[in-house]
Design a binder for these strands. Structure first.
Ligand SMILES: [Zn+2]
Ligand SMILES: [Zn+2]
Ligand SMILES: [Zn+2]
Ligand SMILES: [Zn+2]
Lengths: 154, 154
DNA sequence: ATATGTTATGTTACAACATAACATTTATAG
DNA sequence: CTATAAATGTTATGTTGTAACATAACATAT
């Protein structure tokens, strides 16, 4: 477990104490699996990697429940357009989590989580409100090609 | 088949002729199923409704292929966050199809398709381009509560 | 009219993603 | 030490989607 992951886990532990919930060993390990991956993973891929990384086979059902927990506590996001899960890129940031915006490369499948600029989001919200609709679960998922893949010969 | 649906089908036929592709009876019927629904439908729901509406049981796999066709020709959109399909709200419009933005009610599941305002989309694109990422498949799916559901006692 | 190619549709099997229902274990408050 | 709730395990099943291959329908060339 890299130093960086170590720090993120520590931060998560603290956040859980504050929230009055428990980051059990298995929940923590699922989070470590996600933090160790450069790509988002499906629940079944997490299942496989958990086995490899921790020499222990967790039921897929339990993976889903632990993901539910981690998502509820905002340590993990679900990419709805890909049916995959990814660790939040801002666990160690102290500022409030902004509306996340995911740039998903359809070629190499890397995902970059960027906070959507406040003024753009405000405009978007405003334009939506005028239709009478109220947003929730705010999250944008945008598909395209990452810088790396663009500069690469096919 | 309502008058309005009739008109949309006619327009679709014309568009197919122009594009040099064929809107076969079954493809047309799948489109009619979607046009007849106030909600987006899953492929399996389309399968059920097709049976009911046309007294004919189409293989689910064929449904998927007809959806592929209808999506390719821009008569239908897939809601990636819901794994559901919905007829485009602008088939009869003559203007170019803008980046579609779907407002999805998590309570009653109605979906409103609105064109995202050009200047907002431009800002968004610009902010994304600065990260080196190039967008494709542009489509926004936003979840929330529709006007109707907000004004309704739970 | 026959052969050939092309597109559309059907069939079977299975992969991938997810939840329901209920049992058991573990933590912890009284 | 129990009573209770929370976490995890187990089994079964539901939902969404694709791969691989076969056949049908239609168009075009011989
Ligand atoms: Zn995040
Ligand atoms: Zn890439
Ligand atoms: Zn549309
Ligand atoms: Zn609603």
């Amino acid at each position: 477990m890299s130093l960086n992951i170590d720090q993120i886990i520590k931060k998560s532990q603290e956040a859980c104490v504050l929230a009055g919930v428990k980051l059990t060993t298995k929940r923590k390990n699922v989070l470590i699996v996600l933090l160790s991956s450069i790509r988002p993973l499906s629940a079944y891929e997490i299942f496989e990697r958990y086995k490899d990384q921790f020499n222990e086979s967790l039921p897929v059902m339990s993976i889903y429940r632990m993901l539910d927990f981690l998502i509820r506590e905002k340590f993990v996001h679900k990419l709805e357009t890909a049916n995959q899960y990814i660790a939040c890129a801002h666990i160690t940031c102290d500022h409030q989590h902004e509306t996340p915006q995911f740039l998903i490369c359809d070629n190499c499948h890397v995902v970059k989580e960027v906070g959507i600029k406040r003024n753009i989001m405000a405009k978007l919200e405003q334009s939506i409100q005028s239709t009478g609709f109220t947003l929730s679960h705010q999250q944008l998922e945008l598909h395209g090609i990452c810088e790396h893949c663009q500069n690469k010969p096919k």
